[in-house]
Design a protein around this nucleic acid. Structure first.
Lengths: 141, 141
DNA sequence: TTATTTGCAAACGGTTTGCCGATTA
DNA sequence: TAATCGGCAAACCGTTTGCAAATAA
């Protein structure tokens, strides 16, 4: 990872508090600690944060996560509406197993280029994109 | 349009009622009646439905729209979380103007193929996909 | 010090649901 | 007729917010 969330906060002028540091830490560590396809929702984030400091309220988690999003540090996903998930903004796509819910991250140069081309075609400059593929695992043959 | 929503209901075994017919009609007509980028949310659907039959409740709109979605007739979008939007399931993508909120629909063979290929690469069969491009209009030069 | 942040609990808003009378196939 | 559906109002649940105390710069 290029820069920690804390460093990004500094460069974006986001004030750091003890709570925000803890929340940032939990988000940064979420993948390593919980496996490859770990995309915790706010409630789960709150659970993990609570183990470090049980006095942090869920309102603070919501506020912090929204703050980080507005600073461009995190991106918000609504894979299935009703529960938002946040992760570090590093611009990959998702392949979601509709049976198990497993989430695979991928990047693809070619698709990236194609998207830019399509936006151009309609007279737009691409500023963001969201690509989610939904699939079922093929039987090994 | 190949098949009306009513026809799709018949072929999928979805029972038709007066209310469902009205809701289907409103959805089918949403584009022609309200301009190219008309993606009404449930509340707006309810408003339009009410003009035809004011006794239909919003609960029925929610139930119907979910029913149609489960039958594969409609797809649900959460362009911005908090308010779902439904439209006829005809497998296009969206280019969203982040300034004006305008929504442009497009299909692209190449990107379609590429998506399938990526799913395959990870051992999956693609069953669905969601692609949203966010852009700003380029100045005419 | 002074603006900002946090915790709490209450409010909010979109969506779902239990009940029961009405309607469909 | 038997099964399903619709209207109403209450419940639900993720998220936001007002307030007063606590904290960062």
């Amino acid at each position: 990872m290029a820069e920690t969330i804390e460093e990004k906060c500094l460069s974006k002028g986001v004030k750091l508090t003890e709570q925000r540091r803890i929340i940032a830490k939990v988000i940064s560590e979420s993948k390593e600690a919980y496996g490859e396809s770990d995309h915790p929702d706010v409630d789960e984030l709150y659970n993990r944060v609570s183990k470090i400091d049980p006095k942090i309220s869920i309102a603070t988690v919501y506020r912090t996560v929204k703050l980080f999003e507005e600073a461009g540090i995190l991106i918000k996903h609504d894979f299935k509406a009703g529960k938002a998930r946040y992760e570090i903004n590093d611009d990959h796509n998702h392949l979601i197993d509709i049976k198990s819910g497993e989430i695979i991250e991928f990047v693809d140069e070619e698709i990236e280029k194609l998207q830019k081309k399509i936006a151009e075609k309609y007279g737009y400059t691409l500023v963001d994109h969201k690509l989610e593929l939904y699939g079922v695992k093929k039987k090994p043959q």
